[in-house]
Write a protein that binds this DNA or RNA. Structure first.
Ligand code: SF4
Ligand code: SF4
Lengths: 136, 136
DNA sequence: AACTAAAAAGACTATATGTATCCTTTTAGG
DNA sequence: CCTAAAAGGATACATATAGTCTTTTTAGTT
């Protein structure tokens, strides 16, 4: 239950790799994919999503590739995960407006709200900077 | 992401309903299903799982039905959810032995461990007793 | 013993989601 | 204009989800 998909996992690997590179180092998708052991075509789709929302910057053509969109200390794991997996929804009643007509009186409903809050809070508390294997 | 399935949702509804009934009141599956608005055939499967692990007691034949296996204050939401959805696994590296060869050096790994811990802790902190709409 | 009520068990179906791959198009540099 | 690289779109396949249906077992009733 509650398992991150490959897409999410690959997304994190890919962007963490970028975060570990010098801020102005343009990386080839094929290099990133190879380094983090992800199918390149799949990673391409993921990075397209990142690019659309500015999490990464992309450059086409010769000499193109990817760059981190912002400083690694300003990108949280929550953002990365939600970018590709959508919002953290432990149960469908936590969306607004609630998708369950029982949410008004249901005692379980607030529990899922708490779960959502805790997960978001853990993920929001981690930045890409902390996730690289660089010591500075 | 991380969404409870219908099965899990229905499981909770069903067992919370049981928990709200007198401890010795044998309930028909069909009644439970109607009360909590779940397809009876689906709920049957769920209660079979509950029955196997003793979360509910079942009686066949005339006058049969279901009873809560233990006192509602001794059954946590975590147990109920894990009974039908399996363990809380936010990412596959949190199982033991770890299913990812990167888990040794990966900085993301401990984050998923934390997520798992938080979710489990929230769910383990809620008992069926607190989830009924009865005030005593 | 026969009948009936009810859960257990197993097979089956349909739909949605996940996990990719491939091909074509756009963009940019040399 | 040729080549490198990302973007976009279509497609294929596998797995999981959500449920139904039928048959079997068990237990009480008449
Ligand atoms: S937990 Fe309660 S409010 Fe949420 S989906 Fe289930 S019944 Fe509805
Ligand atoms: S978070 Fe790290 S250890 Fe866990 S699956 Fe991803 S790479 Fe492996």
């Amino acid at each position: 239950m509650m398992e991150l998909t490959r897409k999410g996992e690959y997304a994190i690997r890919g962007i963490v790799y970028l975060a570990g590179k010098p801020i102005d180092k343009v990386c080839l998708l094929s290099d990133i994919a190879a380094a983090v052991d992800v199918p390149p075509t799949f990673l391409a789709k993921i990075f397209q999503q990142f690019s659309k929302i500015g999490l990464v910057k992309s450059f086409r053509g010769t000499g193109g590739g990817f760059l981190l969109g912002r400083a690694p200390e300003n990108i949280t794991l929550l953002e990365v995960v939600e970018a590709v997996e959508g919002p953290i929804i432990p149960n469908r009643c936590v969306v607004s407006p609630p998708e369950c007509e029982r949410s008004g009186f249901c005692k379980v409903h607030p529990v899922w709200k708490r779960v959502q809050g805790e997960v978001r809070s853990v993920l929001a508390g981690v930045t890409l900077k902390e996730l690289t294997n660089k010591e500075h």
